[in-house]
Design a protein around this nucleic acid. Structure first.
Lengths: 388, 388
DNA sequence: ATGGTTTATTAACCGTGTCAAGTAACCGAG
DNA sequence: CTCGGTTACTTGACACGGTTAATAAACCAT
């Protein structure tokens, strides 16, 4: 990164709680008047004025956008706004077969995308692929890295964010991989390692439906089934690094064996591979996921049955999650949500059947996530480290 | 309450975050040296000295207990200790058939107990019973209420603590009962209404196994099955007042109908009434819980089967809880835990079978709770409102 | 006694945010 | 156009709450 970026980051790091909160408020709700910041943060107007000044001086925030002309009496608000291009981040999502990277601005708007296929899963090969994607994303920034603030990497599994270590990833077949150490000297900015679902949760909390809500969950449906939890405004990390393992709730039949070896896991019925396997078996041949969706749409009995069972199980799992943690909102995400019409009725039906009392006032929204969105999550994890 | 108590409470209320934290630290770890308080709270020694002074002046804390003679070099520590008798609380647990009340000191040590049977469950009758128990517990304190700081009431169900309203209690058949309003002018101190399991969680967090642990759960097994959750140091209340409903996770067979009307709830298999009902049916006559336990100990097939199924279901439910929230500790409590030998193997077996990855490093401890302990929980809820 | 060591207290100081007052920028009415 | 009404923002004094650094206190070992 260059000196300008370094100065901005240093400023953000030096902020104490209140000014930092002012910054994130401006970041997530930009443009916004000072008085609204004051109301949202609970700080005095004076404190907001004082907190905003250095941010403007550093070029992170702009003032004096044209002021309102709304006919109301009184001095018009003069909103301040974030300068999205004040810093740049790179977000990387590591999939089983591919590394996807995005370059984003401060608001996780995607500026560029690059991908690299993965053939091997050993840490060195993956690190090489990540470095290659990074290199291509960094190139336009110039030799010094320009305004690059950090590189975030999202990996599924048990991730120790503070240490930058992937403790365990069944997906990748990794145990105790010090990803940050391996990557740090191959990219031009600080590296942040984060669990993929948690990263997605951070994005939704800062820039998505989760904005302003401090108890919510995001459930991702796809190759795996996972959940990220926010409770009382904080990410639930799990004391031992594991939490939100909704895919391994034992809600399915005991005779369904999960890839993890346990019996009756939700994933053993409702993850994409499980659905495809069930339909394939019924038809006596290998069916692709695209074909499986088509069959279900065409009313094929086996396919309908498989999707129904999956939807019911997921709905039950979400009810369990809601009964235990009582969130305000559940966001349904992940790749498979684009076929939500296949889940819709049965999922919500099972959810409503099992959710308890007023916990059922929890809202459920659908948000299909592309792989790019996962990478954006990794970028959001970087931004989160800047201001919190 | 008298003037002395009022002054002490006013002092505690006036404390800002840091001194308040000092007080709770002394309260929960008394006796303790100032330097240990400093280490535990992260405050400077100077701040601790300053914070302790007014507490000593108010008689909430004592100084100058005989100092150590341990042969170590250096000035010996002169620990400060809480003065348990500086304030008195009353804690009430409302059961279906009985109201149990305790008078306690600041550390929830029980000073006296009184009970009153409940014949009717309508709010007025229950309030009358509570008032009667309170009156008897308050009597020795003198006409002005003496050092009484508050009256806590623990009720099962959906409780809005801030409003003092029981929003819903299936147990009592209540909906939107403004218990605090009904009770406030019949007792001589502020009334705190709390969910019973949450109250128990508060006790364990302040004075029990949960001390110093900020992500833990307490699962109570008995007439109902519930859970209280602490995540990241805070009680999980549920945005809509419902959380920890582990008894209504749909982990049992769909043909088991729960008292709540849903299918497959854990309670429909594992709560005491469900166990008794299963055994009664098998034997073609009404069996009491005492007899059910006896039958199981004697190796009766139906009884063994019922307890095994209950234990397995509860173990699975706990695994689900742990997989989702990743706590450090699960406390098994409630009345039925006294028969834990009947649950033991199957419960832990099912738990270990379904818990995921390193979440399984979560410890599980048994703590049988008497009804008096539940009432102590209500007292702890009062103390919690004093210093937090 | 004397120095070493650890705990507790004291005093100076400083960062952070509030309060209260003042200033700015608009409206609409006379 | 001016002038009061209204709302948004700024400024400076101040108070609070904590830290750091120096000092005192209370013990041990030599």
């Amino acid at each position: 990164m260059n000196d300008e970026a370094a100065a901005r980051i240093a400023l953000l790091r030096s902020l104490s709680a209140a000014p930092s909160y002012v910054f994130t408020t401006v970041l997530t709700r930009s443009p916004i008047s000072r008085i609204d910041v004051s109301r949202l943060t609970g700080l005095s107007q004076a404190a907001v004025t004082k907190a905003v000044a250095p941010l403007v001086a550093a070029g992170l925030v702009v003032d004096n956008l044209g002021s309102r002309r709304d006919g109301l009496p009184g001095r018009p608000v003069s909103p301040v706004a974030i300068v999205p291009e004040a810093l740049v981040t790179i977000g990387i999502k590591v999939n089983v077969d591919e590394v996807i990277g995005v370059r984003t601005d401060l608001t996780t708007q995607v500026l560029a995308t690059h991908r690299a296929p993965l053939t091997d899963h050993d840490p060195d090969s993956v690190v090489a692929a990540i470095a290659q994607v990074c290199a291509r994303l960094e190139a336009p920034l110039g030799p010094d890295g320009g305004l690059l603030a950090g590189v975030g990497v999202a990996v599924s599994g048990d991730v120790d964010t503070a240490a930058g270590v992937v403790r365990e990833s069944a997906n990748m077949g990794w145990t105790a991989v010090d990803l940050r150490a391996l990557l740090q000297d191959r990219v031009g900015a600080p590296v942040v390692i984060e669990n993929d679902v948690r990263a997605l949760t951070i994005t939704e909390h800062m820039f998505g439906v989760g904005l302003g809500i401090d108890s919510f969950a995001i459930v991702t449906i796809g190759r795996g089934i996972g959940a990220g939890l926010h409770v009382n405004g904080e990410v639930v990390e799990g004391v031992h690094g594991v939490a939100g393992e909704i895919g391994h709730l034992p809600l399915a039949d005991r005779d369904r064996i999960c890839a993890c070896g346990r019996r009756g896991c939700v994933e053993a019925v409702a993850a994409t591979p499980a659905i495809v396997a069930a339909i394939s078996e019924a038809h006596g041949r290998e069916v692709s996921i695209t074909e499986a969706v088509q069959l279900a749409h065409d009313g094929d009995a086996a396919a309908t049955q498989a999707f129904t069972e999956a939807a019911t199980t997921i709905g039950t799992a979400i009810a369990s999650l809601v009964n235990l943690t009582g969130p305000d909102l559940v966001i349904l995400g992940g790749e498979a949500v684009s076929n939500f019409d296949l889940f819709d009725q049965n999922l919500l039906g099972a959810y409503r059947e099992h959710v308890f009392g007023s916990a059922g006032r929890c809202r459920i929204v659908i948000r299909p996530h592309t792989f790019e969105d996962w990478a954006r999550g990794a970028a959001a994890a970087v931004i989160r480290t800047l201001a919190r």
